[in-house]
Amino acid sequence: MKLKQIMQLLSARPLTDVVDEELEISCACASDMMSDVLAFPKEHMILLTGLVNHQVMRTCDMLDIRAVCFTRGKLPTAEALEMANEDGISVIATDLTMFIASGKLYAGGMNNGTIG
């Protein structure tokens, strides 16, 4: 599934200067605990989270996660967004809760998930 489709399914808006809508995403991880994200990494993964600090981007950098979606209308801190822009991570945001956003992705065909 491309990031563009994810943005449509979640009615998500872009937050970083560049959002690679053609990015191929094959699974999702929904968690506020970066410890859990680090324990269950997969390739071509999008991270759904409500944690807004810059350690989210640091975790993505370590795991080569190229896309992050903030849920429930939460927005990353300025430091987090700056780090995402520097590292070329595509960041989007949705007003949906993490549960509903996960459900929409699953129903939309992304059932190769990893749950923290």
Binding site: D32, M33, S35, L38, N53, T59
Partner: peptide
Amino acid sequence: SEGYSTASDDVRMMGFGAGMGLAN
């Protein structure tokens, strides 16, 4: 052992302290 942690609530607010670190 996974899940065991002595981290404070402040640390958990930062997204860490789930007790997965050493095992991971």
